Amino acid sequence: MEPASVRTKAPSFLSDLGKATLRGIRKCPRCGTYNGTRGLSCKNKNCGNVFRYGARKQPSVDAVKIITGSDLQVYSVRQRDRGPDYRCFVELGVSETAIQTVDGTIVTQLSSGRCYVPSCLKAAAQGVVENQCQHVKLALNCQTEATPLALKSSVLNSVQASPETKQTLWQLATEPTGPLVQRITKNILVVKCKASQKHSLGYLHASFAQKMSPKTLADHRFSCYCQAPQPGQGGPTEE
């Protein structure tokens, strides 16, 4: 045994640290290896036990321009006050305004926007300047464009749907007014649909969510604004 006189003594300024503890580390329940409490899995390569699925969620993009294949400018905009997965549609355009001056009448072009969030539509109907809407402002500053996703006929044929539904989808996909499906974020898509009173622009949002659990398999959840959310499953809406 090494003599006490030979042992390295701690510096005097560390003399009041007290007894060492195991704070900040934990023992792997499978192999017994000590890991940091912030670790996601055991550092023992032969073990590989997963402690938790801690993948940090990426922030959602505020505004994304949709490919329409025409002069129509449509944007998918995040509703900041509702959460990262709640989005709405904004349509931008240019309007002409006549201004009277001492030299005559000047016709100028002004950028105009229309937000399809019910509260913003109501404010616009009451005479509030619509360009003050936060969603329109985000669309005006947009620098991101959606990513088109190709539709394969083989995939469409394998879908469990009626022939009439498949024919409608194929017609929408082959129209020159932009792709059928576009990716907005990792989990949110914009899908082209038939224009209606509820979807006047001919687009709707769809989202995919994957919830991981160490004890269960991945739980895939799908939400589309064309359907009402199922009981117990909150789904993002656009309007």
Rank of each mutant, 00 (worst) to 15 (best):
T97E: 15
T33K: 09
R221V: 02
N141C: 05
G232E: 00
P231W: 05
H199E: 12
T174Q: 15
Q100D: 11
F208M: 13
L189W: 00
T147E: 02
S119K: 04
T177H: 10
A123L: 07
C115D: 04
L204W: 01
K215N: 12
P148R: 03
T237P: 00
L14E: 13
Q233L: 15
S154C: 09
Q210A: 15
Q160C: 06
K211H: 13
S153T: 15
K192L: 06
H220Q: 07
V129L: 10
R78Y: 05
G32H: 11
P148A: 14
S223C: 10
Q134W: 01
L201H: 09
S111C: 07
K211N: 14
S5V: 10
G235P: 00
R183K: 15
R80Y: 05
T144F: 06
Y225S: 15
C47D: 06
F89L: 15
Q73L: 14
T237C: 11
F89C: 03
R38I: 07
M212D: 11
D16L: 06
N131C: 07
I184H: 04
K43D: 08
R82V: 11
G234S: 13
W170N: 02
S41K: 08
S76P: 00
G178R: 04
V64E: 02
K122E: 15
S76D: 10
E91F: 00
A124N: 11
V74F: 12
K194P: 04
V155H: 14
C115L: 03
V74S: 01
N131R: 14
P176F: 10
R87I: 07
Q134N: 11
S153Q: 12
F13S: 08
S196Q: 01
A150H: 08
C120F: 01
C28F: 01
L149S: 07
L180T: 01
Q160L: 11
V129M: 06
K122S: 12
H135A: 06
V64S: 03
K9C: 13
F208D: 06
H205M: 13
P148G: 12
M212A: 10
R23C: 00
R7S: 13
T105N: 08
T37G: 02
G18E: 08
S95H: 12
I188H: 03
V107T: 13
K194A: 10
K43T: 12
H220V: 07
V155T: 14
Y75F: 15
A195G: 07
G54N: 01
I99K: 14
W170D: 08
L138W: 02
